[in-house]
Design a protein around this nucleic acid. Structure first.
Lengths: 208, 208
DNA sequence: GGTCTAGTTGACCAAGTGATCAATAACTGA
DNA sequence: TCAGTTATTGATCACTTGGTCAACTAGACC
């Protein structure tokens, strides 16, 4: 509308603006909504400027996804580290991070990612990378507990894959529906306790 | 290319062709690939004919999804009925249907569905409907077993939601990666056995 | 204050989407 | 055989997408 006076910023600053807008759009409306024009409008700039900084939109989408996913992982990693060295408490923190704290928008971003990665090779590569990072972290938590003799996890990576895959599904589910997160955590704790060959109360006790 | 002689078919037959093409495209390349022109080309017909039979493309996509999902559910339902009345064997059949038999393409269709439903209201409605149907069926299986005293399932619907949500995630996971389906079934059986308060061997025994 | 670098823009293009509609022609039935 | 019904089509529209490029100008620097 307004023929606003054109402002000239440093490449770094502008790049950050473009990137931040793309990220915000992704979280609000999904990865598919991250278009050249949508980003440009949000920044308040001509569409051409977006491509000037971005080279390829597909790459921008992939990059946005990567950072959102990675940030989420680091958040969970931090909360696991925060609880200290007790293997069981670390598992509980991990599971809470996977379910309870899982933000609705982030869960939907993952779903978008899997769907879009069929047509976006850059995104597909990033997606696999980030999924492996999640698995790797979960595997570490399980492996450490097994080594310490706190529970039974002879194949930490396989267990991690299982737990991450299952909780991803649950997160997506509760992202679309609502009000079922509470009981979900209980089921997850109980199921994982069984897989770890420890009484369910052990996880439940550590969980408040 | 070829100016092939135009053929004239009955509306019912043509409608079925259009619908079948849409379905095939969805299974091969995802729901997002179900476009007017893609369907037309597959049928070997002018794009205009597709809209002539379809009214709105969004509705076609939603309808295709509904039928794919429903058929999958009926398949699993049939395999559960086929094992007879034993509650435990029925649970095993259900879980196998949710994981092992879950076809890669169908799992991806679900992911596509969740992602696309943000922009396709018809699809969103169908998706919720089909998800509820899955939950409802799983809840029946759990409820019957609980009533028969075969296992412990005081809240069958909540448990069903949990199991369906978790297995959806695992299906999507193994649809994208490969070679992990085998061990996944084992984990699922073990985890569900714990939730049902029965020894893991009970499910494992029924599973071969 | 003038100059010049380079950030920014408008005007495009090509490709793809769904959808409409008058015109065409294939088959049916008399 | 020959109309008449109607399935089918080509042409075309409106809109969205990513992307290019010469031209413009804001702001730093001398």
């Amino acid at each position: 509308m307004a023929t606003q006076k054109r402002v000239r910023k440093s490449p770094e600053e502008r790049r950050a603006e473009v990137y931040g807008a793309a990220r915000a759009i992704a979280l609000e409306s999904g990865l598919a909504a991250v278009t050249q024009r949508a980003v440009a409008e949000r920044v308040g700039v001509a569409p051409a400027l977006v491509t000037h900084y971005v080279t390829r939109m597909e790459l921008l989408v992939a990059e946005v996804f990567r950072d959102i996913a990675r940030e989420e992982l680091e958040l969970v990693r931090a909360s696991v580290e925060a609880v200290g060295d007790d293997p069981i408490e670390r598992v509980v923190a991990l599971l809470r991070g996977l379910i309870e704290d899982y933000r609705r928008d982030v869960a939907l971003i993952w779903v978008d990612g899997w769907s879009l990665s069929r047509r976006n090779d850059d995104l597909a590569a990033v997606l696999v990378e980030e999924a492996r990072a999640w698995e790797g972290f979960a595997a570490e938590v399980f492996q450490a507990g097994d080594a310490a003799g706190a529970f039974h996890a002879p194949d930490p990576l396989a267990l991690a894959r299982f737990v991450v895959g299952a909780t991803d599904g649950l997160s997506a589910q509760s992202a679309v529906w609502t009000g079922v997160e509470r009981e979900t955590v209980g089921y997850v704790l109980e199921a994982v306790a069984a897989l770890l060959r420890i009484p369910a109360e052990e996880l439940a006790r550590a969980s408040y």
